[in-house]
Design a protein around this nucleic acid. Sequence first.
DNA 1: ATTCCCCCTTGACGCATATCATTGCCGCCC
DNA 2: GGGCGGCAATGATATGCGTCAAGGGGGAAT
Lengths: 236, 236
Amino acid sequence: MATPFHNPSCHHCKDRFSSIFCKAEQCNLDQIADAKVCSVYRKGQVIFHEGAYPFGVYCVNDGKIKLSHSGDDGREQIIRLVKAGDIMGYKALLSNERYTATATALEDSSICFIPKDLFLNILQKDASLSFEMMRILSSELRKAELKITHLAQKPVRERLAETLLFIKETYGLEEDGHTLSVRLSREEIANLVGTATESAIRLLSEFKKDGMIELEGKKIRLLDMDEIIRTANLQD
Amino acid sequence: MATPFHNPSCHHCKDRFSSIFCKAEQCNLDQIADAKVCSVYRKGQVIFHEGAYPFGVYCVNDGKIKLSHSGDDGREQIIRLVKAGDIMGYKALLSNERYTATATALEDSSICFIPKDLFLNILQKDASLSFEMMRILSSELRKAELKITHLAQKPVRERLAETLLFIKETYGLEEDGHTLSVRLSREEIANLVGTATESAIRLLSEFKKDGMIELEGKKIRLLDMDEIIRTANLQD
DNA sequence: ATTCCCCCTTGACGCATATCATTGCCGCCC
DNA sequence: GGGCGGCAATGATATGCGTCAAGGGGGAAT
């Protein structure tokens, strides 16, 4: 896949900035609006790559992205699912290190790039933006630590159910109120759960047999939410 | 560093605050020095408890603390090891939620408490302190995500070796240059690795048989660092 | 339509690791 | 000293889950 193409008329940015940047002061927002560059990435395209040096931060206008580590043996572990309004790439920027994850578009996505210097600069001046940034980081950290506990203590079956709920929380459902509105390969689901692809497939089949879900290609319909929640065995 | 603190009840604070608060402006440091309250916690005492509401942030002057989640089935997962100079409890404070982890002293520890309002207030005013806070959060997040990948992909043996190295990095060695300077029960080691206590014991015995380490009660001596590193199989 | 290729699916197998149970060790208290 | 309780160590056993292998189906390109 080639380079993403520049999208000069990116009207949606301003709205999409709501989640984080709405906290910023107006003058800073304007600066960002001037400096940002919007592009469209096709499904499967890489936005940034593990090991590379960051030159800025990315804000998703529209689309769905996965952030993943590539483990030692080449297997990938999906760390985070990114949706419209989220930013990504800030971790490497703030700690001034290389990217620890690769960002790949799960579907065609419109993404803004904000240069490093500008972002850090505004962060220095704008207390409420900084604070929002800290809130986001804290929340991500909380989720990560919970995931650690679950990976260490829960069987794959529970984690898979939990993952289905997580995907639903993140990307929501289609109009029918049942179908997950993102198409992931079985391998991606497994890499999200932290298990082998075959195990994920087998358990999905079981879930289907038990009437919890319906499968149709990459479409996954959540039928019996109560049972899924029960299977996930969430306490916290 | 100079002596920004003059709280007579806590002589050591000034040195230990270096790691984060040295980034703060002097006037803010003074305010913190006035407001903070220092206490000594005995080994095994709980500093704060999962589920409780935070009223401030803790800064460790001296001692060693473990932060742990209590999993659904009661098993604990150790999330972080805290050492002198570190702060803890900030996550819950920043995201304005209850503590997600319990802090327990691994040995007698001297700990300062900084009230919530003051901390948040200063964070609003002091850009470089905020920035340092973001750096810490980013770094913790990076570590947490790495741990997720390893939990999902590496066998217990590698994770145990990695954990030994991690303990060494965190708390260092005793004067002999080999003995880990913290005493953890086998169960705590297992809860750090994310495995059953018996598995941890068995593998420690293997490591000993292979000449990598020496065991004497809770003392663990790292003999063959190269081999331990090799066993940990680190890539990143 | 046919071919190819990728992904999904299912089965068989074996290992790593959890679990259960027992024993031994050491320090502590009465 | 004797018993007691917590922790460490080790063995026996069970099983969840990863890995290997083979088959099947559907979409895209030609």
